[in-house]
Design a protein around this nucleic acid. Sequence first.
DNA 1: AATCTAAAATTGGTTAACCAGATTGGTTTG
DNA 2: CAAACCAATCTGGTTAACCAATTTTAGATT
Lengths: 235, 235
Amino acid sequence: MRVEILTKNENQEVQKGIISKLRDLINYKNLEPGDKLPSERMLSEKFEVSRSNVREAIQKLEFFGILKSRPQSGTFIANIGRVAMSGMLDDILRLEDPDFKSLVETRILLELKTVRLAALRRTEEDLEKMRQALDAYKQKVLNGQDAVEEDLLFHLAIANASKNSTMNTFMLIITPEIITNFEKYHVCDSNQSFLGIQEHEDIYQAIKNQDPKIAKEKMKVHFKILYQYCYNTKD
Amino acid sequence: MRVEILTKNENQEVQKGIISKLRDLINYKNLEPGDKLPSERMLSEKFEVSRSNVREAIQKLEFFGILKSRPQSGTFIANIGRVAMSGMLDDILRLEDPDFKSLVETRILLELKTVRLAALRRTEEDLEKMRQALDAYKQKVLNGQDAVEEDLLFHLAIANASKNSTMNTFMLIITPEIITNFEKYHVCDSNQSFLGIQEHEDIYQAIKNQDPKIAKEKMKVHFKILYQYCYNTKD
DNA sequence: AATCTAAAATTGGTTAACCAGATTGGTTTG
DNA sequence: CAAACCAATCTGGTTAACCAATTTTAGATT
């Protein structure tokens, strides 16, 4: 059989096609929540795509909690009603790649919350990890080196101390893209890094003292420069 | 060769093993950011796992933006320095499945922001979609039917109107789990749904009037009952 | 007619062989 | 000596055959 090699983009189109066909299947073929999907082989034949493509699409929908596949048994539609199902599939199909502004916006929102929660819930062990990340950051900055990574690791340590696994995951998802863009646009130059040391130290102290209000305030200060910087360079 | 069929859980363990071995590779084998990873075949041999397992692990790390594989060329380490890389891999390995409380906490945080942004950025088209979702919700409630899904679809329409793709994605990620848990714990009973109509209507009007302050306030009101309910039944 | 049982068919997962584009190293050519 | 070329090799992606657990089914038994 003729094999087509697809670029990443074309592949994404194929996946979207599969997902939209699955949506149609659910909408018009009376597939109820909890029902079993047709087998991967059948779908790949019906949709005229490879079985691996079908598997990938299923995996993606499984990540979004819409499908659930059980080994040697079948792939099942999550128990969330046809209306929500169809609406969510539409939304997933409409998803765009995140832009930098959207990432920063989300990061600020998340961190103003995680820092409060961290102040309330941190353990001694959390403090220890944050201390280490902070020291690594200071050392790099004092040596005049770039410290974007150490910076972000400190923030991730805070997210970890917030004891909210969802926010922690979300922070992990956006962090690499943030780092890449920061280094690309030279956000956080060394002169700002020196300020960053004190700001980080303030945040750490507030969390240590279990003072959520101060913690949030200090984080806001820390983000102020960043926020302006990002909105000036972009858009 | 003897084939082992693994449960979902065991499979997850295998994946974590691969990820931690990849981390070691980066830490101790002098793999720099931007470098090419050994080929999938080589890794599967070295780690003594199947190539598909390696591919799955790579796909997961690609999702977190840590790796980037290019067809017919290789899999490359993202340009984010060994320190951040190692730290993030540790965090990913430590990730737990989200608990209900963490989901609700995150949802409230996200929505108090998306509703503000929606009020600022909504288009006429966005309003139309929200109107439709709202009407579907009202009809279901007035018929005395369960309307959890329509409820959530209205909220997703708001996230869509916020024009922040990252928050929109995050809302989509948490929604199915929220729905499942709501139906499980019978959050949002019909008596609360009647209140919900007016609350939704208020939110819609505030967004229509492009008043972010009122929009956020009304959303807060909408979540008040929910928040208490969740924290009373759980924990 | 209902119930149990074993075999056959079906399933997602796994493996290995294969594909064509990308890379590479050596050779040729200007 | 450097640039252009070419073939051998390596790569992630794709395919198809295969595996074992599960589900279904048909038959035997009570």
